[in-house]
Structures are given as structure tokens and as C-alpha cells.
Design a binder for these strands. Structure first.
Length: 302
DNA sequence: GGTAGACCTGGACGC
DNA sequence: GCGTCCAGGTCTACC
């Protein structure tokens, strides 16, 4: 089966794949030879399929070896639409950065979109697994979680979809610790249980009309989600005025604007304040002149 | 409100 | 080979 989906111009699938490390996190995978983004996906019916996404025409094609029913095709299209932000019109962003020579290439090269998971739940789990650890460990933790608890792909049972909230909610804390997530185990189980029970509706965060304060409060109410994780998740759901301030950001901004002296959150915010609602996206795509902060998270260095 | 220490793991380093 | 230190973001106890 093959689906064709169009995107708001300018568009570059390659730019999305390299937008951050998410494409390296299971169940995403990258076919480097064909420049395709792949993913093992569990549909709402419980069916597990492999999706291969390639750039084509004014958007992408989505291929799967499986024959899908009409409603399944709609679900796949909806998910890919969200993951790649196909409907996002970034022209106001490009307009805002047009006067900045170091960002002028973004529009020309179709850079701006950031890869995200099909569900906010999956992104919250992955962000939790990026905190207080190195990138390589994040990759291993996500891989272990997917392999242990996600549904297998029928045609290749060694590969799995991302586990659902119900599946993670049923896991024992000691079993999660055993796969290496450490102290994050109770946070993950608490999150999965609250989502599975309907106490927390993370998918409502996809709604642009939800007030930013409410989005922030809902995220910060989750165990293990602090200021950095909240800001990163806000950017992922499309709230581009948030800056994920971690040690990498601190060091980069310190070197770029403050002569290497230690900086606080306010100074980081001030450095990007002139881009207003787009400052988080400007931070994301800023061409850092020094190779600071990439000692550990090499996969995220562009 | 601000600060210190614990959480957890793997890599780097010294012996 | 072994022990120690360090890095990462969040939470909690304490002042």
C-alpha cells in the first residue's frame, strides 16, 4: 500500500530526519541509502505494520507491505501528518528570521520542522529517558523498552512497536529497573497508569487552542518532568516560544553571547527574546559557532 | 525561595 | 582488574 501526502512548502524530509536524535530512537529507523524514515507502528486496532516514508513531490509517500483498510489508511495518514508536521505553515517563522543572515538558509533549505512521535505519550516517555543521562544511554533505554514491551511486527518479530500506556502500566517497577531505566522506572509507570486510567489526557496537548499555561501546568504535573523536559515537550507539541535549557544550552549561550561566563535562565531567554514566539525554534536551529555541549549528545549535534 | 544531596549508569581515568 | 570520579535533570529535605 502506498499513500501520498502533501506538505506546506518549503519541505525537506532530510531536514526533519536530522532535526534531532529522535529518528535514532526505536521504533523509528533511518534507511540511509534511500534517505527514508521508517517506523514500526501499532494501529488502534492492534495491528502492527511497518511504515517507510520517503520524500516525493510536494510532500512524502508512505509505504507499507501490508494491505490496509480505509480507516487504517486514514490513521496512518493522520499519524504521519502529526509526526512530520506536514500541515504546519512556517512562513511567519521564516519572516521573523529573515533579517538574521545566519538563519537565512532555513527557508531556502526547507529547514524548520522537528520530528516528533505519533503520540504525546511516546514523546513524554522519550523525553523522560533523555534526562540526567547521556544520549547513548537514552538510545539503549528506549530500545529496551520497545523490545520488551511493544507488540512485535508479525513479519519480523524481532522488531516492535512502541508500547501503549496500557502495556507500560502493567509492568512492574523492578522489571523496568532491570532493563536499565533506573530511578525513572516509577515515573514511567506513574505516567502510563495515569494516561491508561484516563486521569491525564496527553493527546489534548495537540490542540493549538489550548492555553499555553494549561499545557505547561499539565506537563509539569507529571513526575520526572521538570523545567527542561517541559520546555522540550512544549517545542515538540508546537509551542515554539519555549527554550529547553539544559547544560548544553547554557554552555552554548554562554560562549555565543556572554564571553563564556556562566549564564542563568533569564540571560538565555534574553539572548533569544527578539524572536518572540519563535525563540525556541531559533534556539533549535541556531548555527552554533563553537562545538560546545556536544561532548556527550553527539547524535544531536548538527 | 534557595541549596544540597540523592537518584542511576557507564565511560574515563588512575593505580 | 578494581576503585573512584564525573556527567546528565529532577525531586525532596532542609535551612
Amino acid at each position: 500500500m502506498r499513500l501520498a501526502l502533501s506538505a506546506c512548502a518549503p519541505f525537506s524530509l532530510q531536514a526533519i530526519i536530522t532535526s534531532h536524535g529522535w529518528a535514532r530512537l526505536s521504533p523509528f529507523f533511518v534507511e540511509h541509502q534511500t534517505a527514508a524514515l521508517g517506523r514500526v507502528e501499532r494501529l488502534s486496532t492492534g495491528r502492527v505494520v511497518e511504515l517507510i516514508i520517503r520524500e516525493a513531490g510536494d510532500g512524502v509517500t508512505v509505504e507499507t507491505p501490508d494491505r490496509l483498510e480505509g480507516f487504517e489508511r486514514e490513521e496512518v495518514a493522520r499519524k504521519v501528518w502529526w509526526m512530520l508536521r506536514l500541515g504546519e505553515d512556517l512562513s511567519p517563522f521564516y519572516e521573523a528570521v529573515r533579517e538574521e543572515p545566519r538563519l537565512a538558509h532555513l527557508e531556502r533549505e526547507g529547514i524548520g520542522r522537528i520530528l516528533r512521535s505519533p503520540t504525546v505519550f511516546e514523546d513524554v516517555v522519550k523525553v523522560l529517558l533523555t534526562t540526567n543521562t547521556t544520549w547513548d544511554r537514552t538510545v539503549r533505554m528506549v530500545e529496551a523498552l520497545v523490545t520488551q514491551y511493544g507488540d512485535p511486527l508479525p513479519t519480523d518479530p524481532s522488531r516492535h512497536a512502541f508500547p501503549t500506556p496500557d502495556q507500560l502500566a502493567a509492568v512492574r517497577e523492578e522489571d523496568l529497573r532491570a532493563i536499565g531505566v533506573g530511578y525513572r522506572a516509577p515515573y514511567l509507570i506513574d505516567l502510563a497508569r495515569r494516561v491508561a486510567d484516563g486521569e491525564v489526557d496527553l493527546e489534548q496537548l495537540k490542540d493549538d487552542n489550548l492555553p499555553a499555561d494549561r499545557v505547561r501546568r499539565l506537563l509539569q504535573d507529571l513526575q520526572g518532568v521538570g523545567e527542561y523536559a517541559t520546555a522540550l515537550l512544549m517545542v515538540l507539541v508546537g509551542r515554539y516560544d519555549a527554550i529547553p535549557v539544559d547544560t548544553v544550552a547554557r554552555e552554548r549561550v554562554s560562549q555565543e553571547w556572554y564571553g563564556g561566563r556562566p549564564v542563568g535562565d533569564e540571560e538565555i531567554d534574553r539572548a533569544f527574546a527578539r524572536w518572540g514566539e519563535w525563540k525556541g525554534l531559533v534556539y533549535w536551529w541556531w548555527p552554533w559557532s563553537r562545538d560546545t555541549g556536544c561532548k556527550k549528545q553527539e547524535a544531536e549535534c548538527r
